[in-house]
Amino acid sequence: MNTAAASNGHPKISLKGVTKHFGPKQVLRGIDLEVQRGQSLVIIGGSGTGKSVMLKCILGLLQPDGGSIHIDGQDVTHLKGRDREEVMARMGMLFQGGALFDSLKVWENVAFGLIQGKGMPREKARDIAMAKLAQVGLSADVGELSPAELSGGMQKRVGLARAIATDPEIIFFDEPTTGLDPIMADVINDLIVKCVKELGATTMSITHDMASARKIADRVAMIYEGRIIWHGMAGDVDHSGNDHVDQFINGRAEGPIRMQVRKL
């Protein structure tokens, strides 16, 4: 039924009026957003504006309080159990800190979704994992190491290999370049662009690194105080006509966005 819906020209991902609060703190105040098939959307915004929460709502790691989330036209807002796993199998995610399983070897990390999620035999999954590692520029002997033995940049690459291992239709990137030096950040950006192109996947990334955003985005959306305040083509971000966007992409302390510097 999912594939039938997929061919009907629905947007790949669509959010309508998604809200979420934690205790008294309203984090998402009605997010409306659409991502078309094969597009790369980058969501920019300062810390604590709700970027990660929105991503986790789409992934089903958090339940939104209101609104709806559709993937390929299918309402996934309140999916549970098997149905949720089915949708999840079509998605991949690169976590900010890599989130590699430190009890497993590098190749077992990459092959995890294949072995546990899809029930593939270990030998076959291992071959695929090694191929995916090669795709992100890591040699086969890295596969035998444990994640703790890797540098930050290598961990990110392994995380990327894991995210693309099951050939997902949608890939999410949570601050893919945070904590890396500028050169390694660019390497990761290149890898993301290359891998996504090879897979033909739809991607949604959140970042506050404008260099990264310019490199990987087809479209850019800016989130501020739990709402999407601007949405447009990546090339238009420099003349958006929106003061908030201007302030953010130029990194100015003065402007309509006031950072909360006093203690909460």
């Binding site: 992934l59 399983f101 546990q116």
Partner: peptide, 17 residues
Amino acid sequence: TMRVTEQIDALTTLSTN
């Protein structure tokens, strides 16, 4: 540690409960 480093979320995204 798995919880605070998002490894538990990662399990979910890899179709594992």
